[in-house]
């Protein structure tokens, strides 16, 4: 059983729950940028929650299925078409043998997750099938898909197979906007900012630049940030936004030269010499991956306690999704999930 790539789309890659535990060695987690959407598509279909899926950014691929196969989508709204005929998102669909699956243009959100029963069966690398393009690691030959690729599909779990037509409960269907709020815990280096700049950062709209990808989301349009003039410490670069090299958390916001903030995402470099003025909370990182270039965000300052509450609410919502789809897991799996989010 396999899938042939006729057209790859814009940036389609194999992703799963990610490659946790190697970031200290410079290997980022990778994995679906919108973890909730990836998991919802898998759970809807009856797959293991963390089965490898295709992450399709801004434009869907065109795929031919060599055998009949059930699929489900999550995340962005791009109407799936089977041999040209439109079908709903967030629903289990059957693709007949030899049929071509394509997608209409994206109506909302930025990344669609295509789950196929059995999952995309590329080899695991360091415990994950996720593609880390910069490191040419994992996924399909370590890169986004190209025309002519043939993707292997795993054995479906027939015991949990979902019926064709099963729909994601309405409460879990994503609602996308054109303006978003992203919650941020300030620090660790915001003390290097001038006070006025620090306040204004949270009061202005910032537009996603077209250079937004899995490594980082760059923003434009706000007033440049001013760092306090100082003698650079030994080991730091000359620009006031430089620091002595430090670890970069996923979600951290750096502002090179004070001009354009960048949120690091799941394919990020693990460290460097730019001051981080804050970190987007883990519960909002899925949303970052669904913001289209040129859409606007407002950064909202929250405390660490609020961030932890939001994290708890996220975990509870995921658990509610599992229960709703009849796949509640045991405690051990939940703990593993918690670690994957760290």
């Amino acid at each position: 059983m396999s899938i042939e790539v006729i057209k790859p789309g814009l940036a389609t890659s194999v992703q799963d729950a990610g490659r946790a535990g190697h970031y200290h060695l410079g290997i980022p987690p990778s994995g679906a940028m919108d973890q909730f959407a990836m998991r919802s598509a898998n759970l809807l279909l009856g797959n293991a929650e963390d089965a490898a899926v295709l992450e399709c950014a801004l434009m869907g691929p065109e795929l031919r299925f060599t055998q009949a196969c059930r699929i489900a989508t999550g995340g962005a709204e791009m109407v799936p078409k089977i041999d040209g005929q439109a079908h709903p998102n967030f629903e289990v669909l059957e693709v007949p043998a030899g049929s071509v699956l394509s997608f209409d243009f994206v109506r909302a959100g930025a990344r669609l997750y295509l789950a196929v029963e059995g999952g995309i069966d590329v080899p695991e690398r360091l415990g994950s099938r996720s593609t880390y393009t910069l490191g040419a690691l994992g996924g399909y030959e370590g890169r986004p898909l190209k025309a002519g690729d043939v993707l292997p599909i795993g054995q479906p779990n027939t015991g949990t197979r979902a019926a064709v037509g099963r729909r994601l409960p309405e409460a879990f269907v994503p609602r996308f906007a054109k303006h978003y709020e992203l919650r941020v815990v300030p620090g660790l280096y915001d003390h290097l900012l001038e006070e006025e700049t620090r306040e204004r950062f949270y009061q202005e709209d910032w537009s996603v630049a077209s250079e937004a990808d899995r490594i980082g989301y760059r923003f434009k349009g706000g007033t440049p940030l001013r760092f306090i003039e100082r003698e650079p410490p030994f080991g730091a670069g000359d620009d006031p936004s430089n620091i002595v090299d430090a670890c970069y958390p996923i979600g951290s916001i750096q502002v090179p030269a004070g001009s354009e903030p960048i949120i690091l995402h799941r394919d990020a470099v693990s460290g460097g010499g730019y001051a981080m003025v804050g970190t987007v909370i883990s519960a909002d990182m899925d949303l970052v991956g669904q913001i289209q270039p040129h859409q606007k965000v407002r950064f909202v300052e929250v405390s660490l306690e609020q961030a932890l509450d939001a994290r708890k609410a996220y975990a509870e919502r995921l658990q509610a999704l599992r229960v709703a789809l009849g796949q509640a897991l045991g405690d051990a799996r939940d703990q593993a999930l918690g670690q994957a989010l760290d």
Partner: peptide, 9 residues
């Protein structure tokens, strides 16, 4: 003819 994805033209 329509834009297949969002971007700068």
């Amino acid at each position: 003819q329509q834009a297949p994805f969002p971007g700068v033209f």
